[in-house]
Amino acid sequence: MHLETEKQFNEIAQSIPYQTIQYKDVAITIKRLDQIHPAISGNKFFKLKYNFSQAKNLGYKGVLTFGGAFSNHIAATAFAAQLFGFKSLGIIRGEELQSHPYNATLTFAHEYGMQFSFISREQYRQKNQVDFIEQLKTNYPDYYLIPEGGTNDLAILGCQEILSPSDLQDYQTICCAVGTGGTISGIIESCQPHHQVLGFSALKGDFLTREVQQFTSKKNWKIIDDYCCGGYAKVTAELINFIRSFEQKYQIPLEQIYTGKLLMGIFDLVDQGKFPSKVLVIHSGGLQGRSSII
Rank of each mutant, 00 (worst) to 15 (best):
E4Q: 08
E4R: 10
Q14K: 15
Y23S: 12
Y23K: 05
V26Q: 02
A27C: 06
A27G: 04
T29I: 00
K31C: 11
D34K: 05
H37P: 14
G42M: 05
G42R: 00
Y50P: 12
F52Q: 09
F52N: 07
K56L: 11
L58D: 15
G59Q: 12
G62T: 13
G62V: 09
L64G: 12
F66T: 08
S71C: 08
A75S: 12
A78P: 14
A78E: 06
A78L: 02
F79E: 10
A81S: 15
G85V: 02
L89P: 09
L89W: 06
I91R: 06
I92G: 10
R93N: 07
E95I: 06
L106F: 04
H110C: 08
I119V: 13
R125G: 15
N128R: 06
Q129H: 06
D131W: 01
D131S: 10
L136N: 03
K137I: 08
T138R: 06
P141L: 10
Y143C: 14
Y144I: 08
E148A: 12
G149D: 09
G149V: 01
D153Y: 03
D153F: 12
Q160W: 03
E161C: 04
I162M: 11
P165L: 07
D167A: 07
L168A: 11
Q169R: 00
Y171E: 01
Q172P: 00
I174V: 00
I184S: 06
S185V: 04
I187F: 03
S190D: 03
Q192G: 01
V197E: 09
F200C: 09
A202R: 00
A202W: 01
L208V: 11
V212T: 05
N220C: 06
D225V: 04
G230D: 13
G230V: 07
Y232H: 14
A233G: 12
K234I: 10
F242Y: 14
F242M: 14
I243C: 13
K249F: 04
K249E: 13
Y258I: 15
K261H: 11
L263G: 10
K274F: 02
P276M: 00
S277Y: 00
V281W: 01
V281M: 04
V281R: 05
I282H: 00
S284K: 02
L287S: 01
Q288W: 01
G289A: 03
